[in-house]
Measured scan of single mutants.
Amino acid sequence: SQHQEELPPPPLPPGWEEKVDNLGRTYYVNHNNRTTQWHRPSLMDVSSE
């Protein structure tokens, strides 16, 4: 059986914070524009500005 090492997730872009809601779900807060989202932001998402 193949065992895959879990890679650590990439660092969050500046201004982002990973949080967990009261149901144990992980979400991400963008403090730059005060938004939240479910999927993890990547540095590539942000660098397109």
Rank of each mutant, 00 (worst) to 15 (best):
28 Y>E: 01
38 W>I: 07
38 W>L: 12
22 N>E: 09
2 Q>E: 02
35 T>Y: 15
28 Y>L: 01
39 H>N: 12
45 D>W: 03
21 D>L: 00
3 H>N: 09
34 R>W: 02
45 D>C: 04
11 P>F: 03
4 Q>Y: 14
1 S>R: 00
2 Q>G: 01
25 R>Q: 15
47 S>I: 05
36 T>G: 01
41 P>F: 00
31 H>T: 10
26 T>L: 09
9 P>H: 09
7 L>N: 12
44 M>D: 14
14 P>W: 06
42 S>L: 09
16 W>P: 00
38 W>A: 11
2 Q>N: 15
19 K>F: 02
1 S>C: 03
49 E>R: 00
41 P>M: 00
17 E>R: 04
22 N>A: 11
43 L>V: 09
10 P>M: 13
29 V>P: 02
15 G>P: 10
11 P>C: 08
25 R>F: 05
3 H>A: 04
28 Y>M: 00
35 T>G: 08
6 E>A: 04
34 R>N: 14
36 T>Y: 03
32 N>F: 08
11 P>M: 13
13 P>T: 06
38 W>N: 03
11 P>H: 09
8 P>D: 10
25 R>Y: 06
1 S>A: 03
45 D>M: 07
8 P>L: 07
13 P>A: 12
44 M>Y: 07
48 S>G: 11
9 P>D: 07
29 V>S: 04
44 M>F: 10
35 T>R: 07
3 H>R: 01
5 E>Q: 15
5 E>V: 15
31 H>K: 14
2 Q>I: 11
30 N>V: 00
21 D>Y: 00
25 R>P: 00
9 P>K: 10
23 L>Y: 08
48 S>H: 04
31 H>N: 12
39 H>D: 14
14 P>A: 13
31 H>E: 12
13 P>E: 06
34 R>E: 08
6 E>W: 02
10 P>N: 06
48 S>W: 03
26 T>A: 08
23 L>S: 14
21 D>E: 02
37 Q>I: 04
7 L>M: 03
3 H>Y: 09
2 Q>L: 02
47 S>Q: 14
44 M>S: 14
19 K>M: 02
15 G>N: 09
28 Y>K: 01
18 E>G: 05
2 Q>A: 01
15 G>H: 07
35 T>L: 11
45 D>Y: 02
4 Q>T: 13
29 V>R: 07
42 S>N: 15
43 L>N: 13
36 T>K: 08
22 N>F: 02
27 Y>Q: 07
46 V>R: 12
46 V>C: 07
18 E>K: 14
23 L>H: 14
44 M>E: 11
48 S>L: 13
43 L>E: 07
39 H>Y: 07
11 P>I: 05
26 T>C: 08
8 P>I: 15
26 T>M: 09
6 E>V: 05
41 P>L: 00
40 R>I: 01
7 L>C: 15
48 S>N: 03
1 S>Y: 09
44 M>K: 12
